[in-house]
């Protein structure tokens, strides 16, 4: 009841926090921009041309991409944790993330490019590999038990991830001079963010995120148990397939834009669950906010801690995520002991 009453307040607080963090991330960086000038860019006023250029051409598209990637990864994590009834699941559990990474690494290593669109090669290849991976994983799971059992999908997903990682290492060993950019990319980076990337991310989140949000009731049923979901009338196979496709597309787009960013999809849904509870009607929207805020702060840390050097965002999310996850587990255990 506390959580139900708290939910509207929580959304207000999360919205305010997201806006505040976005403003902070736009202002802070290698070249700090005063809040006054940031406000002037949007609402008119005096601002130096250099700062305007940094803000409009670099900071703003980056902040938008980071927020959208964070929100998407977190939403996918929350959906997968519910769907697979596994608190350790996230968008990468299916193996699609590894597939997309393999595609991107191949594109980077062999210089695959789309004529006229110099940066689109990596993105398109990553997306194609994400779809191909999902098709392969679901086909293999279907061949295994003819019923798309969750355990079969997880098993095939884990095996496929290992296979994709091995293939990635093989490709990297032939990458020659491009190895540095590949390594940086595989650890996650949103430094080359652009408005068109943000648009692609926003459309993907709108469509796939919309599909996921519309399945909140079904996710509640799955989170209690797949058999229970079947008993209360959920079309288990159709819902599972729909959600997996939505998650895969979203993960594929995120990986193609920002590389593999670990821990966001795993940790932030747990943070949201601590605030609004496990009911997906409240959890999914809260995960969107918490994912965006978490990744924005991680990105801010990545580009400011060792200024002027920039860390990979994945390094920061892994370091912070591991500590945060341990604290969350400890908090939940204490809560459970308290309940008992």
């Amino acid at each position: 009841m506390f959580r139900e009453r708290f939910a509207p307040v929580a959304y207000l607080l999360l919205t305010a926090a997201l806006l505040a963090v976005m403003v902070l991330c736009v202002c802070a960086g290698n070249q700090p921009i005063p809040l006054r000038e940031t406000r002037a860019v949007f609402f008119g006023g005096e601002v130096s041309e250099a700062n305007r250029s940094i803000l409009v051409n670099v900071r703003l598209p980056r902040v938008l991409c980071v927020a959208l990637v964070g929100a998407s990864l977190s939403l996918c994590g929350a959906a997968m944790q519910g769907l697979l009834r596994n608190p350790l699941a996230d968008g990468s559990t299916l193996g699609v993330s590894s597939g997309a990474s393999l595609g991107a690494v191949i594109a980077l290593a062999f210089g695959i490019a789309v004529p006229g669109l110099p940066h689109a090669g990596t993105m398109v290849t990553a997306m194609l590999f994400a779809f191909g991976s999902l098709a392969l994983i679901l086909s293999l799971a279907w061949m295994l038990d003819r019923s798309l059992e969750t355990n079969s999908i997880i098993l095939i997903g884990v095996i496929f991830s290992m296979f994709a990682s091995s293939m990635m290492n093989l490709v990297i060993s032939f990458a020659g001079e491009r190895i540095k950019s590949i390594t940086f990319w595989t650890m996650g980076s949103l430094s080359g963010s652009r408005y068109d990337y943000a648009l692609i991310l926003a459309v993907s989140l709108l469509v796939c995120g919309g599909v996921i949000l519309l399945h909140a009731r079904e996710l509640n049923a799955f989170a209690v148990g797949e058999e229970n979901a079947r008993h209360i009338g959920v079309n288990v196979r159709r819902v599972k397939l729909t959600l997996m496709i939505a998650v895969s597309v979203l993960i594929g787009v995120c990986v193609s834009v920002g590389g593999t960013i670990a821990f966001v999809g795993l940790v932030t849904p747990h943070m949201a669950r601590l605030i609004v509870g496990p009911n997906h009607k409240r959890l999914l929207p809260a995960s969107l906010f918490s994912g965006a805020i978490f990744l924005l702060l991680a990105d801010l840390a990545a580009r400011t801690i060792l200024r002027p050097r920039e860390l990979s965002i994945g390094v920061v999310t892994s370091l912070v995520g591991a500590v945060a996850f341990t604290l969350i587990l400890r908090f939940r255990r204490k809560g459970a002991d308290g309940d008992a």
Binding site: G82, R85, N86, P87, N220, A223, V224, G225, E227, N228, H231, R273, G277, P278, N279, A336, D339
Partner: peptide, 12 residues
Amino acid sequence: ILDQHNTSSYDY
């Protein structure tokens, strides 16, 4: 249908 074993991973 009521199953023999009923659990949940989350605190609904």
